[in-house]
Structures are given as structure tokens and as C-alpha cells.
Design a protein around this nucleic acid. Structure first.
Lengths: 222, 222
DNA sequence: CAGTCACATGACTCTATAGTCATATGACCG
DNA sequence: CGGTCATATGACTATAGAGTCATGTGACTG
């Protein structure tokens, strides 16, 4: 947890530091992210970081478990207000896929950071952090699927936890790879130049999502 | 490319160095892997590494583009000799999934290294290396799928390259996550203690694969 | 005005890395 | 035996990172 000093900071200064921290930790894996570079860019002294946070991991943990989820939830809330509630499998998945891609394109930094929790790491401390963050999302997702099975919208002959993992792998890293492959760019390029994401028109996006959904819902059989 | 000196080495010495190099680069992402640790474990001098290779990347590139594919191809060849040739979609996918999981469990080190090519990286040199290695596999896979469409085994209304990506995401990182989630272990734990993989019995494996295939082939609809 | 308190600073320590290089070893040859 | 050539070595250099700490600053207070 950040120290009180961090929250006592003037809003604009705290916001500026947060932005540069998001930049730094989204652009590089944790161990390659550099506090020296962060402070140089943000225009603060090295020692100040340790006035605000316990250490590097404390800063990263705060971004990952507080700041990113807060921003993502806000984004998702705004999205879901625009569209009607869904009950069908296709509707549920369509909403999930579309908002996933849109969030991804809207702020690649955030989803890059968010997706870090599903990458394997050799560092035990990071692993614990990632496991904690992953477990929350996975459990909520499995519950939603169980609801769909009970409503007769989803085949019930397969373990919902397994189905959750399959869908998660397609909609998680899989979706990222598909969109990036379609755009012909790399996550880190996208992070540096957000306008690259605008290459994907609304119509192309719908087409892409419908194709993925078609395969997920109806399978690969002709 | 390794220097001639490396290939002039006595077979057992070269093999020992290769083993420790596989250990080191499988256990840690490239930038966290340490040549100092490698030479300490392998019992050679730091300078010797530079008698054998241009630099760290040269060693890593050799492992990734020569040694790992050679070993994987060997493994796959032995596997396919045991089973009859397949032409149906289900048969094709079943063989792909089963051999994928088995290879994964047989030597987590190799598949860990092999899967590194599909992880995003901020390092341009690594990205070029990974892109080269990925492109080869992806193209071959798309061609096989096109063949299945022509044989009427696979729906043809969706871009084969997209289907290839969906399947690849499920059978690639997705499959890894599913098996690991099922075992309740982590790739790096598995790499350190190979016996963990034996917790998954043959029957459980078949069941798991059939479930994944069922979802892939028939879709999520009840 | 003197004192206190929260915050800011950047030079510094400690540690680890990739890569270098002068020197040594030892097998083989004339 | 003397010399040459491939190979081995580990102390050393250069670089970069996280984290520390003594010192400074400036606003508010009695």
C-alpha cells in the first residue's frame, strides 16, 4: 500500500506520477521497468518514490490491484450503460468480446498491465500477486457461466470451470493475439502509438467478433 | 550461430553445457537468465561462453531456432509413428491436442522455451527472433487447415487464418493454462519438479482432451 | 521571529549483470 | 625438445538497477 504521503500529494502531481508509472510498467515487464527511468521522466527525485511507496513492488501492486481495476470497472460501467442487459449465451459473449476489444484498443496500457497477471513468472512474489488478482476474476466468471447453464443457454455436460478457462483463453490472450495479428502490430507498438488501434474500423471489429463468436458458439464443424 | 569451437567440443561437454543452458533459459525469461549463473552451474569459465557463442543472444537464438525445434520434431515423429494417420477434423485436432499436452508434460523445459516465442516482449531484438520463429509454425498450420476445409471437414465460411489463430490460442497458451490449472501447479514449478506432471493420469488426460475438443468442434451451445 | 513538520532531493552504497582480455594449459608436430 | 595453435580461465571493466540517507526547503504555528 502506498504511504499516506502519496495521498497527501496535490491531485495533479499524484496524477502525473500515476500516468508515468502506468507508462513505465505497461511498456516493460516488471523486472525491466526502471524506477530510475520513471523518476527521470516524471521529473521527481529517486528518493521521493520511497516517500510514496514502500518499494518497487508496492508501487506495482497498487497499480495492478487498485488503479487498473478501478479504471477498467469505470470503463465497463460506462459501456454497459449504453447497451441493454443480456441473458442469452450469444448476447453475453458478444458483449464480453466487444467490450474486451474496445477496452483493449481504448487504452492498451491498462489491458497490457491487466494481462500481465496471466503471464507466468519465475519470481515468487510476483506469482503470489498475479495469483491473487487472477483468482478474483476467474471465480466471478465461473459463477456467471453456471447461471447460463441453469438458464439452458450453455451446455451443462462439461465442467463450467473448464469452459471458463477455454473462453478465458480465447477472450484473453487469444483475443489480443487475434486483433493484433489482424492489425499487423505488436502490443508494445500499440502502446506507444494509440492511433494504430484506429485502423480497425467499427465494421471490421463487428465482423471479427462475429466470426470468433460463431466459432465459439457453433464450433468448428461445417 | 555458435562458433566452430562449440562444435569442436567433446560431445559430452557440449551436451552438458546445452542441458544447463536449457535449464537456465527455460527457468527465467531471457533478460533474467544469467550467464554468470549458467557458467557457475555448468562448471566452465565465463570467458568460455564467448569462445562458443558471439554473445548471450546468440546462445539463446541457437537454443530457440535449432536445439528446441530439433528435439520437438524428434518427439513428434516418434509420437506419430505410434498412431495411424488422421484425416478427420476431430482426429486431426485430437492428435494435435494429445501430442501437445504430452510434449508439454514430457519436457516442460522445452515447451516453456518454445512458448516464449508467443509472449510479447519490449525488446526489439527478441521480437524479431520471436516473429521469425512464430511465422514458420503459423503458416504451416494454416495450410493444414485449408486442406481440411477442402476435404469438407472444417467450416469454410470463416477465414482459415482466423480459425488458425483461434485454435492456436486454445491449443497454445490456453491448453497450457488449462492443464496447469487442472494440476494446480505453475509452469516454473513443473519445470523444477517433473514428477508433478505425472499427477495427471492417462485417463484424466483423455477426458480433459475430449472435453476441450467437444467444445472446439461442437461449440458451446447445448 | 523561531521552531516544527511534511515533503523533496540527489549523491551514494551495494549488488548484479554482460562482455573483455592478458595469461595459462596442453596436445600435437617437426 | 621447442614451437604453435586451439582452447580455458577468472579477474576485471563498464553499466545499470534498487534502495538509503543526510541535508535542504518552505509553509504553517505559537
Amino acid at each position: 500500500m502506498p504511504k499516506p504521503t502519496f495521498f497527501n500529494l496535490p491531485d495533479d502531481k499524484r496524477a502525473r506520477i500515476t500516468e508515468f508509472a502506468l507508462d513505465e510498467f505497461a511498456a516493460r515487464p516488471y523486472h525491466r521497468a526502471s524506477l530510475s527511468r520513471l523518476v527521470a521522466r516524471a521529473g521527481i527525485a529517486k528518493g521521493s518514490v520511497y516517500q510514496y511507496f514502500e518499494d518497487k513492488l508496492d508501487l506495482y501492486r497498487w497499480l495492478l490491484t487498485e488503479e487498473v481495476p478501478r479504471r477498467k470497472a469505470e470503463y465497463m460501467r460506462r459501456q454497459s450503460e449504453k447497451s441493454p442487459p443480456v441473458t442469452s449465451l450469444a448476447g453475453f459473449l458478444r458483449a464480453a468480446v466487444l467490450s474486451g476489444v474496445r477496452f483493449f484498443l481504448a487504452d492498451p496500457r491498462l489491458s497490457q498491465l491487466g494481462s500481465a497477471i496471466s503471464t507466468p513468472t519465475d519470481d515468487p512474489e510476483l506469482r503470489a500477486l498475479y495469483a491473487e488478482a487472477t483468482a478474483m476474476g476467474h471465480e466471478r466468471f465461473t459463477q456467471m457461466l453456471t447461471g447460463l447453464v441453469e438458464a439452458g443457454q450453455l451446455r451443462g455436460d462439461v465442467d463450467p470451470a473448464l469452459v471458463a478457462r477455454i473462453i478465458a483463453s480465447v477472450l484473453g490472450s487469444g483475443l489480443r493475439d487475434i486483433v493484433l495479428g489482424h492489425l499487423g502490430v505488436d502490443v508494445f507498438e500499440l502502446g506507444r502509438d494509440r492511433s494504430l488501434g484506429e485502423r480497425l474500423t467499427g465494421a471490421e471489429l463487428e465482423r471479427l467478433v462475429d466470426d470468433i463468436l460463431g466459432v465459439l458458439v457453433d464450433g468448428l464443424r461445417p
